[in-house]
């Protein structure tokens, strides 16, 4: 057998494997870690899952900012519990990414160099206590819409991680809404503070769903592989529809003059997102991009002694066992 027939056989094998892989996905079967998968599927998943993990972890910063300044011990305990949950969610997701053959060190390194992204909403500052309400209600709310859909993603460990995360998220959104509701029952200044937070977080929350389907670089292939189950625009619409009633119920106004019910579509119409802002923040020019990564890097570096101590302890124990 000469080289070219060998290559031909190999690509035939690959084509058969790929056909079998796609047949599984078309049949709504999950792909599991030890299954054969196209290299691009693996890469695409690592990109998406790690981006999701980094978002959970970086997302702790804007909320961590208010833990020491929460207006009551109860709110402080709630916020602490929520931030702890986010750390856990990051861990579930890093572990799911690692089943694809990438290490934690590589993932963290990609976050630090900027090769990997995280949800750009976390590059906006949290300026007031009301922002804790807006983040819980809108940012976690948008994340939930996305994550509920991802419970049906084609990669088993990712889908199972999503089920676990969704179980815990509902508390996050409700506590945020409860903060805004309480402020809206307060005095004029408190109502203003709540409205101001919603004004600043509404549009960035809509941006969380990513570019329009027509401009989304990864969407087509991700839908065929069922990594994504619903398109960016579908999910964004779902979020807008559910948010309108929630805003009205406590007297908040969503900052969009074009927002109105469309009887024919059975959905709310809404205005166009400022895509220049979206791409500018992704490119690193948001208010907090540099701070967020620098903070993570610092925390990681300052934790180096813990990793070294664990290593030293294990080496000592191993030496004692062989002695």
């Amino acid at each position: 057998m000469n080289m070219s027939t060998m290559n031909l056989n190999r690509s035939q094998d690959e084509a058969e494997l790929e056909a079998e892989f796609q047949r599984r996905i078309d049949n709504e079967e999950k792909i599991e870690p030890k299954d054969w998968m196209p290299e691009a599927y693996r890469k695409n998943l690592i990109r998406q899952i790690s981006q999701h993990a980094h978002s959970e972890v970086i997302g702790m910063q804007p909320e961590g900012n208010w833990i020491t300044r929460a207006p009551s011990l109860h709110r402080k305990a709630v916020l602490l519990a929520k931030v702890q949950d986010e750390a856990g969610h990051g861990l579930y997701l890093y572990s799911a990414a690692e089943t694809l053959g990438i290490s934690r060190e590589e993932l963290i390194d990609a976050l630090h160099t900027g090769a990997a992204k995280y949800a750009s909403i976390f590059n906006y500052p949290s300026l007031s206590w009301a922002d804790m309400g807006a983040i819980g209600w809108l940012v976690d709310g948008a994340a939930i819409v996305n994550q509920v859909s991802l419970q049906r993603t084609s990669y088993g460990p990712y889908a199972r991680g999503m089920v676990r995360i969704c179980k815990e998220e509902s508390f996050h959104q409700r506590q945020g809404y409860h903060i805004l509701m309480t402020l809206m029952e307060g005095d004029e200044r408190q109502r203003k503070m709540a409205q101001d937070a919603v004004n600043r977080f509404w549009w960035p929350s809509l941006m969380m769903f990513g570019p329009h389907d027509s401009d989304s670089e990864h969407s087509g292939q991700s839908m065929t592989w069922k990594i994504k189950r619903q398109s960016n625009d579908e999910l964004r619409q779902k979020f807008v529809d559910q948010s309108v009633e929630q805003a009205e119920a406590i007297g908040l106004t969503l900052p969009d003059p074009d927002l109105r019910w469309n009887e024919e579509r059975g959905h709310y119409d809404f205005g166009e997102i400022d895509w220049d802002e979206f791409y500018s923040v992704i490119a690193g020019n948001g208010h907090c991009n540099r701070d967020r990564v620098a903070h993570h890097r610092r925390a990681h570096d300052e934790g180096a002694w813990v990793r070294e101590a664990l290593d030293a302890y294990e080496n000592k124990r191993a030496a004692a066992r062989t002695a």
């Binding site: 519990a81 709310g141 508390f171 409700r174 809404y177 929630q246 119920a249």
Partner: peptide, 19 residues
């Protein structure tokens, strides 16, 4: 003793209680 970690802890208006 930390019931606030559960969704049901938060009493919301009926209209939006499916959140």
């Amino acid at each position: 003793d930390k019931p606030y970690r559960h969704a049901t802890h938060y009493q919301l208006p009926e209209k939006v209680n499916n959140m």
